[in-house]
Structure formats: structure tokens, C-alpha cells
């Protein structure tokens, strides 16, 4: 039985749902044949330096709890059915982010016999994040673009906007490490130089 609401209530409910979805997208990650490079960069986005959990993004273990499927790697013949099954197990509405050149087109593995090509050969993809592997910043940007799309904005003209009022994000903008503060970051900067 579906709930019948009158229009204004329905609109309000939709708004609430979009709000909730944008504020806390839960993601699941599936590797359909990647070299691991993209996977560890996704993991890196969860750890202190990039820490996407502060944006409400959480990596989930089960497809049934997830809103966003983050795919890495080209799709191998073996993994194809699994990928489709996981996609089908996710509740509607669902979104797919393809991370890495491989997930986009097959990347370095194009032409190998066990490769079907990019993820979009098998399931629909909403956001493509190029790079081999993409930097964690790029992955975060991909998620932000997806959220902008959910909000109904044109994703192509929404730059990543951090809220500079929050201390951690201000620190990132200033090139500091939010965990250790300027001293540690400076040391690291020297390390980069």
C-alpha cells in the first residue's frame, strides 16, 4: 500500500527526503577488476587528512543500506554479474560514481580479453571521475558534483565549495593539516618541496 498524500504534503516530504539524502549519502564500494590504486585512494578519502565523513559520507558494508555505488576498475567478465546484482540490491533511488580511468573506459587494460570496458557498459553511471588513480580531492569533487545534481543544480557549474567557517575546512583551504595543525602541515609541506 502506498501512502497517498495531498500535494503540499508530498512536496514537503520530497524536500525532506532530498535534504536527508544530500546531507548524509551512504556509499558502498565495489571493485570490479581494479588494480587497487583507486581503492586505496577511496580509502584515503575516509582517513584523517581528507575525512569525507565530516561531510556526512559514510562507507557501508551492505548494498541494501547504500545510496551511492562507488565503482572502481574495468568490469571483468567474472565480476560483471556481481556488479549487476549489487546494483539491483540497492534501494531506489540509487546513484553510481565511476572512479578512475579504468571504470570510465577500461583505461590501461583496454583490449585485454577479460575486460568488458567501463562500468557504464553494465550499469548506468551518474558521475565520472577521471585519473589513474584520481586524487582524493578529485573523488570528493565527484561526490560533491553528485550532490549538486541531486539538489537540482547544473553540476558543471558548481565548484567545490567548502564552508570556510568550519575550522577543519578552513585549515584545508589554508593548506594545513586539520588534525595536527600548522606545524605538522608545514613539516609535510617541506616534505613535498
Amino acid at each position: 500500500m502506498t501512502l497517498k498524500l495531498d500535494q503540499s504534503w508530498q512536496a514537503a516530504l520530497d524536500k525532506l527526503k532530498t535534504w536527508a539524502r544530500i546531507n548524509s549519502p551512504w556509499a558502498i564500494h565495489f571493485n570490479s577488476g581494479s588494480c587497487n590504486g583507486c581503492d586505496i585512494e577511496i580509502l584515503a578519502t575516509l582517513t584523517p587528512r581528507y575525512d569525507v565523513e565530516r561531510l556526512g559520507i559514510k562507507l557501508q558494508g551492505s548494498p541494501r543500506h547504500a545510496d551511492v555505488l562507488i565503482c572502481t576498475g574495468p568490469v571483468t567478465r567474472q565480476a560483471r554479474d556481481r556488479l549487476v546484482r549489487i546494483y539491483e540490491q540497492m534501494p531506489e533511488p540509487k546513484f553510481v560514481i565511476a572512479v578512475g580511468s579504468c571504470a570510465l573506459s577500461g583505461g590501461a587494460f583496454r583490449g585485454c580479453y577479460n575486460i568488458l570496458g567501463g562500468v557504464d557498459q553494465v550499469i548506468p553511471v551518474d558521475v565520472y571521475v577521471p585519473g589513474c588513480p584520481p586524487r582524493p580531492e578529485a573523488i570528493i569533487d565527484g561526490v560533491v558534483k553528485l550532490l549538486a545534481k541531486l539538489r537540482g543544480a547544473d553540476p558543471s557549474d558548481t565548484p567545490v565549495v567548502f564552508d570556510p567557517d568550519s575550522a577543519g575546512e578552513a585549515a584545508i583551504l589554508a593548506g594545513e593539516d586539520p588534525v595536527e595543525g600548522p606545524a605538522h602541515a608545514q613539516q609535510e609541506e617541506e616534505a613535498i618541496a
Partner: peptide, 10 residues
Amino acid sequence: GYVHRGIEKG
């Protein structure tokens, strides 16, 4: 074998 891509042949 889920991530077998055929690299040796490639």
C-alpha cells in the same frame, strides 16, 4: 579470479 583482467596476454 574476480579481478582477472588478462594482463599477461595484454
